[in-house]
Design a protein around this nucleic acid. Sequence first.
RNA 1: CGGUGAUUAGCGCAGCUUGGUAGCGCACUUGGUUUGGGUCCAAGGGGUCGCAAGUUCGAAUCUUGCAUCACCGACCA
Length: 558
Amino acid sequence: MHTSQYMLSTLKETPAHAEVISHQLMLRAGLVRNVASGLYTWLPTGLKVLRKVENIVREEMEKAGAIETLMPMVQPADLWQESGRWDDYGPELLRLNDRHKRPFVLGPTHEEVITKLVSNEINSYKQLPLTLFQVQTKFRDEIRPRFGVMRGREFLMKDAYSFHLTDECLKKTYQVMFDAYCRIFERLGLDYRPVIADNGSIGGEGSHEFHVLAKSGEDAIAFSDESDYAANIEKAEALAPKGTRPEATQALTEATNLTEIDAKQTVKTHLVVGADEAGEANGLIALVVRGDHTLNEVKAENLAQIASPLTLATDEQINDALGCNAASVGPFGLDIPVIVDRSAAHLANFTCGANKTDIHFTGANWDRDCQNYTIADIRNVVAGDPSPCGKGKIEIKRGIEVGHIFQLGDKYAQAMKCSVLTESGKNQILTMGCYGIGVSRIVAAAIEQNHDEYGIRWPKAIAPFQAAIVPMNMAKSARVKETAERLYQQLTQAGIEVLFDDRKERPGVMFADHELIGTPVLLVVGERNLDNQEIEVKDRISGEKSLIAIDKVLELFN
RNA sequence: CGGUGAUUAGCGCAGCUUGGUAGCGCACUUGGUUUGGGUCCAAGGGGUCGCAAGUUCGAAUCUUGCAUCACCGACCA
């Protein structure tokens, strides 16, 4: 490709509204352009990267035995009504009507369509197990799209779905997919970690997220400093403190002016909306964590007594129920259920709200001052906590979620009546797994992890071009022009993707552009080295320059 | 959805306080110059000043409403 016949679209200045580095570089390097909030056009260079990621994902999925399909992005509402998600999915699900006023959705995911398909097409246990996948554009009407393509509304995703007769078979495929995911991220050249994850609203048991580690990551991940344990902080268990609780030695005393208390010797009490046996919102529940800890909303929401989604009581509700302000809520003397975090439950002689505005208790003790409570793990782990795996301490790093695999179970198969005849001739509902990879998000994540002050430093496997030829003063030197063109022909014929910079620009401009775009190898052709039949090779990652004989250039790409 | 801020040439911004012929840098076009790290000189092209209404002889500038975009929060496979 010659730059004169290409669309580079590089920018010298950083567009004002791009916040994170990957977004800035994707705009500056000419990979994407914003069309509307959360919607992007992929420019030629960006699309090359996107396709490379997509192809690696596709190849590994096929190696793992998955079969490619393509489902529509627009899906009829009745499929979503059948699964129940028409009501469960919030405004993130974009709903629209066609000209006949029939309701449709823009697919944020494809469980309904695939389950319906398999339900119709697969009739016998002999056809199982089956794993299907697609690479398709998804649409989620995010409340607040941000970080460029990292959290856009429209994005490219690989989603795979597996169908099984037994959970045992599902677990086997889950492991195959797990391994395939590891190979994918290794081939992409990214520093990644699989982490234990919460299943979220999608349901089911057994789930891992794959994270690309980067400081700007949106998710916090808890690692053990001594083992392979890694979990999303939403899921990482906070163990109960060891040993027995200290003795109650102080008397319960009301205090008005509290100064200089160690947060570790206090508890804070959140009131949230509870749930009745049918799971409907009903009444309030008190959640107690130690003053220096934070409530883990996912753990709390997963408790049966608590309404989903987790809803904090309003100041008004608190005032109606207790007659005090939110800051003075405490666990004692409440006629609503009290759930106490393990660490908070281990305190003695602590300080807490007294359920009277601006009044607190000191010298508070469980059992003596409050009998009706239950203990649960409801806080976020913090750095230094013992690892739940039993080895080492927790360290917290940030990651970008680029993959997520689930053992779904029969939630969708049940709803969509997806069953086959077994060997004994009986109808049996299938059990499912689902496996997603954010293809477009990987492009942004790769940049977050691989850039410097000059621009992007692509891992070789996904660089838009393998090399760029930069001729020095080609307009004046016929020899440079000839050599560069010959080199270009040679490399191109060998199947190497080379960008030939034939713009009439000064060298500095060309160097800066190619470093911004992140091409791994620059081949600099200049008068200076031609007498020796050599050209200069500059490595984008190491920054090292070296001379190489022109007829040996091909060997660089073996 | 709440809080904050922005909207002037393709991009980055000034002008607005104190109303009076719309500017700067980059990019773009043409000519020259330069040529191993974002040259220099000259001449050009490009604007419903987000939209609408109001005040005024006159509005980018003042007033009101609306829209869009972004940041923080809430939200979130």
